[in-house]
Design a binder for these strands. Structure first.
Lengths: 360, 360
DNA sequence: GGAGGATCTGAATCCGACA
DNA sequence: TTGTCGGATTCAGATCCTC
């Protein structure tokens, strides 16, 4: 006998308690974007002195590693119980928390299918120049058990990716502009709203129409929105009254796609930019090598970081080319050459080799 | 007294045992790409039983204590011991092992600076069509402690990336073609040889010339190759005789880049500090001269001691600039200008003249 | 209306030398 | 160790504003 599930609803409360009210093995897919437990220091200002709005919500303050581990294991154990035998889970995070989440998944017997990288086209920069731009987040897709056969719509993913296999790195912009939900005061309703395109791809890849999707950290309901559009059923769990309110209104306004093939969005495939430094890293040009202009008169020396130096002028291939010509600008790719078998070859030829290899 | 380290050598043996022979706090940077295709009871045995039980006691909260976790904690503890206080570690892996490695790093007190994604331009496709193409691997860059100040050549990374911040996702091809080392039978000498371009970027970003780089899973010596080219010292540890042999020959053939080419773009923080008072002392700015913001609206008057005064606000060029803008901070060198031939010139230009004179 | 410039913002573990 | 203070630090994209 089948109990009646609260589908297409938002259940308000602590996710572990709410999940306990659900029967065993009733959910097809879980998508979870839990608090990251960021441990931020003081205020952070941009170089223009404006202040960065921190993720300082009370719900993200879990505590130290031990507290976070207890919290994580509690909800993940319940999640595992309510998953169908061939069900699967997606868990999302950043370096602060994703390693712990992945370890717990493995320890509980989940079987990782892929880790997927969300490469952000427009991440927030590192304002103080202390680290690499934190330009991605990680998602883990795991089956309930090693032997489970979770849904994977391989052909749909291939179609979505212009006919080649979908890779484990997804290039998508962050949620901003009109998609970003504003509160009545005009400020963002939720500090970490995810783009619907991300959930679209997750649900299209690993669920079927009619499936029941649970999101235990529902927030403003992005998972529900994508589910409703794609003809899936959702169950949302959210603790904060404000978010429940926003998500309810949001979902009310969404109409499922009449023809679901129309709902397939295409990802932008950005032409890869090749920095000159790549030629150095790849050994096509070596630190200390000389570059020449087309007549072999002017020279510059390559450094290990891809900058070049000519006399007292140093900088990028473009900047140095411009300065030694006393020109406003210069395309270093065509200006500079390497000596090759007696002749001179523009470095643009080397760049073309890299691009050709990337295409193949 | 300083012990003599076995630099630019390959030490053959189990990495934990070899690391034990090294003194505390002697290594600047560790790069570790540990094996992960391990079977329980397989070819990777515990370093020694006494050590394992100690680790066992210390890490009993982790969960499943299979041999892989014990092995990982054992080598990472040794790695931590021999790292200098401001040292750092890179650990590399895929979803099979990287989550465990990241968790252990955090639990041991390492402080994650970034996780970095190596996005492969030419990954192996997924033949069965049951998952996404596994097109990336993950690297974790972590400092020894939360308060450590590991080396990060921010400006060099920016130069290497054509003038924009280096991001946490690195697009590089897998190691193939001529770079891939073949054994005498024509087959690849090592199953997971890493591209030298990857190590080039790692070492350029987080070490300086002369630093000592340890790789406890040396394999065919890619870390050593990049280190030698870039003027770093390396210590390689490798268990398999065949790999030691291949790596030895490989490293012998490599010629380092000339010293002058190892210089990379320096950050401004590393420039010599010039007090504003120097400009006054040298007569480039005179007591009583007026300073202006870029629009000529706000003004301040220079005093003989290099302080400035604007209305009732007085102090350094930075402090006054910040206060009259009501900003948390201000770079007075770029904020303030002097009148020159009808136009306004930032006082930073005058500072640059002094620095150029100091260089000459 | 449109072009172009100014402004704003996004899951952020974000300074360092010297007294 | 702690406090002070000099001064270094940002990319893409959406929206708003001006001409």
């Amino acid at each position: 006998m089948r109990e009646k599930l609260p589908v297409n609803q938002i259940l308000q409360g602590e996710c572990v308690e709410i999940m306990r009210t659900l029967p065993d093995e009733c959910i097809d897919l879980i998508f979870a974007d839990p608090p990251y437990n960021l441990q931020l220091g003081g205020d952070l200002h941009r170089p223009d002195n404006s202040k960065v709005s921190a993720v300082d919500a009370e719900w993200d303050q879990i505590g130290d590693h031990d507290d976070y581990d207890l919290f994580s294991c509690a909800w993940m154990e319940e999640a595992r119980r309510i998953l169908k035998p061939n069900g699967a889970i997606w868990v999302m995070g950043a370096y602060h928390n994703i390693f712990r989440l992945g370890t717990f998944l493995q320890d509980m017997g989940f079987w990782i299918m892929n880790d997927v990288i969300w490469r952000k086209t427009n991440p927030m920069p590192n304002f103080k120049g202390t680290r690499f731009t934190n330009a991605h987040e990680t998602l883990i897709w795991a089956a309930k058990t090693k032997d489970a056969k979770p849904t994977f719509n391989y052909a749909a993913m291939k179609a979505l990716n212009d006919g080649v296999q979908m890779r484990s790195d997804w290039v998508l912009p962050i949620c901003s502009g009109g998609e970003r939900i504003k509160a009545s005061d005009g400020k963002k309703a939720h500090p970490t709203q995810k783009p619907e395109a991300l959930l679209h791809r997750v649900l299209l890849a690993t669920s079927d129409p009619g499936d029941i999707i649970l999101d235990p950290f529902f927030g403003t309901g992005t998972t529900g929105a994508a589910a409703k559009r794609l003809g899936r059923k959702y169950i949302g769990i959210e603790r904060e009254t404000d978010y429940v309110q926003v998500a309810t209104e949001r979902l009310e306004a969404i109409r499922p796609a009449a023809d679901q093939s129309l709902a397939v969005t295409r990802s932008k495939r950005a032409e890869p930019r090749i920095p000159f430094g790549n030629l150095v890293e790849r050994g096509m040009v070596k630190p200390g090598d000389m570059l020449y202009d087309s007549k072999g008169k002017r020279t510059a020396r390559v450094r290990a970081d891809g900058s070049i130096i000519s006399g007292r002028v140093e900088g990028s291939i473009h900047k140095v080319g411009a300065e030694i010509q006393n020109a406003p600008s210069c395309n270093g790719w065509t200006f500079w050459h390497v000596r090759k078998k007696g002749g001179l070859m523009p470095i643009d030829t080397l760049r073309a080799e890299i691009r050709a290899a990337m295409e193949a």
